[in-house]
Amino acid sequence: MAAQGSKLVIYAALAGNGLIAITKFAAAGYTGSSAMFSEAIHSVVDTGNQGLLLYGLHRANRPPDQKHPFGYGGEVYFWSFVVAILLFAVGSGFSLYEGVLKVMDPHPVTNVFVSYLVLGGAIVFEAGAWIVAAREFNKTRKGRPILRTVLEAKDPSIITVLLEDSAAMLGLIAALVGIWLGQVTGNPVYDGAASIVIGVILAMAAIFLAIETKGLLIGEAAHPEVTAALEGIIADQASVAQINEILTMHVGPSDVLVNASLDFKDSVDSVEIERAVTEIEAKIKQAYPRVTRIFIEAQNWQEHERTI
C-alpha cells in the first residue's frame, strides 16, 4: 500500500514536471528571461529525479538473495540521496550560475505576458502535483506535527516529491516576482536576482533532503512508538523475566529488522523458550507487518551487561 502511494505521487509529479519543462524552455527562448530558464532547468532536474525515484522503488522490490539476505529496500534511500545531490549540483548550480550572469550582464525580458502565462499555468500544475503528494503525506502523519512527521519519515520518496514540489512553488513565485519587478522598474537585474533566489531555494531543499536521507542510509531505528509496542508484546510473555535490549533498524521503507535480547525465567526449559520465541515473533508480525526480520537471543541479563 505504501509503495503504491509513493508511485502515485511520483507519477503525478513526473507527468506535470515533464510538460512544464518543455513549456518553460520554449518561453525562456522566446522571452530571454533568466528566471524562466532557471525554472526550466529546475523542472528538468525534477523530472529526472522522479525517474530515479521510480527506478529506486523498482530495484527495492527485488526479493532477498544470498548476496543481500535482508533485501534491497535500501535502494530507495540511495536513490533519494542521489536526487538530493542532483538537486543541489544541477538545479541549484545552474540557477545560481544563470542568475549571476544575468546580474553581471542584464538584458530586458521581452514578451512579458508569455512569461506570466507560462508561470501561472506552471503554478496550477505544480499545485495539483503538490496536493497529491500532500494527501499521501497526511496519511502517514496520524495526527503528529508536520515537522516531526518529516523528520521521522521512513519513506523518503513521498517526502522528496513533496519537498521538490514545495521548492518548485516557491521558485515559480520568485520568478514571477522577479519578472514583474523588472517590468515595472525597467531594471532587468531583478530577473537575474530571481534566478539566484531560485538557486538558493533549491540548495536549501537539497541540503535538507540529503541530511534526512543520510540518517536512513546509515541505519535508522523504527519509530519510538513501535519500539514501545514491541516491548509491550514481549513483556506480556509469561516466560520472559526481563528484556535486556531491543534494537530496531529500517532496512527499507516497509522493512524493519528487530533484534531482541531476552532473559527468560530460570524455571523455563528449552522447549518452552522455543515456543515463547515462536509466539513472540507471530504476535509482532501480526501487529506490525513491516517487521520482516526478527532475531531473539536468550541471554542472562548479567551476562548481557558484561558484553555491551
Results as ranks from 00 to 15, higher is better:
Ala2Leu: 15
Pro63Cys: 06
Asp155Gly: 04
Asn17Glu: 02
Val100Asp: 03
Val103Glu: 02
Gly128Ser: 15
Glu231Lys: 11
Ala129Trp: 04
Leu202Ile: 01
Gly29Asn: 11
Ala28Tyr: 10
Leu52Gln: 00
Ile196Phe: 02
Ile233Thr: 03
Gln237His: 07
Ile41Glu: 00
Met249Pro: 09
Gln50Gly: 13
Met1Val: 05
Ile207Cys: 14
Gly215Tyr: 15
Ala238Arg: 12
Lys102Glu: 01
Asp105Ile: 00
Val277Leu: 12
Glu281Leu: 03
Ala2Val: 13
Arg59Gly: 14
Leu57Ile: 13
Gly99Val: 02
Arg306Thr: 14
Ile22Lys: 06
Pro69Cys: 10
Ser267Val: 03
Asn300Phe: 08
Val197Trp: 05
Ala3Gln: 15
Ala27Pro: 03
Asn111Asp: 11
Ile234Tyr: 04
Ile243Pro: 08
Ala21Trp: 05
Ser115Glu: 04
Leu87Glu: 08
Gly71Glu: 10
Phe88Tyr: 13
Ser80Cys: 06
Ala28Val: 04
Gly128Ile: 14
Lys7Trp: 06
Phe25Ile: 01
Tyr55Asn: 00
Glu274Ile: 03
Lys7Glu: 12
Ala127Ile: 10
Pro64Asp: 03
Gly252Pro: 06
Gln50Met: 13
Gln299Arg: 14
Val189Ile: 13
Leu257Trp: 13
Pro106Asp: 01
Trp79Val: 12
Val76Thr: 10
Ala282Phe: 13
Leu217His: 06
Val83Arg: 04
Ser239Asn: 13
Met104Tyr: 02
Val161Arg: 09
Gln302Cys: 05
Ile22Arg: 06
Ala282Tyr: 10
Ala15Asp: 00
Asp46Leu: 12
Phe78Thr: 14
His304Tyr: 15
Leu14Thr: 07
Ile243Lys: 08
Ala221Gly: 04
Leu96Trp: 02
Gln4Gly: 14
Ala229Glu: 11
His223Ser: 10
Glu272Asp: 08
Gly252Ala: 09
Leu209Gly: 09
Ser115Phe: 05
Thr31Tyr: 05
Glu212Trp: 13
Ala241Thr: 00
Ala276Val: 00
Asp255Ile: 09
Phe264Gln: 01
Gly232Tyr: 10
Gly215Asp: 12
Gly48Val: 09
Val114Cys: 08
Phe264Leu: 07
Lys7Val: 12
Ile233Ala: 03
Glu303Ala: 14
Ala27Phe: 06
Phe125Glu: 00
Leu172Tyr: 05
Val9Pro: 13
Thr213Ile: 07
Gly178Lys: 00
Thr110Ser: 15
Pro106Arg: 05
Asp46Gln: 12
Ser239Ile: 07
Ser157Arg: 14
Gln237Val: 04
Ala260His: 03
Ala206Arg: 10
Ser43Tyr: 09
Asn259Pro: 04
Val258Ala: 01
Asp191Ser: 03
Asn138Glu: 01
Ile131Tyr: 15
Ala221Ser: 12
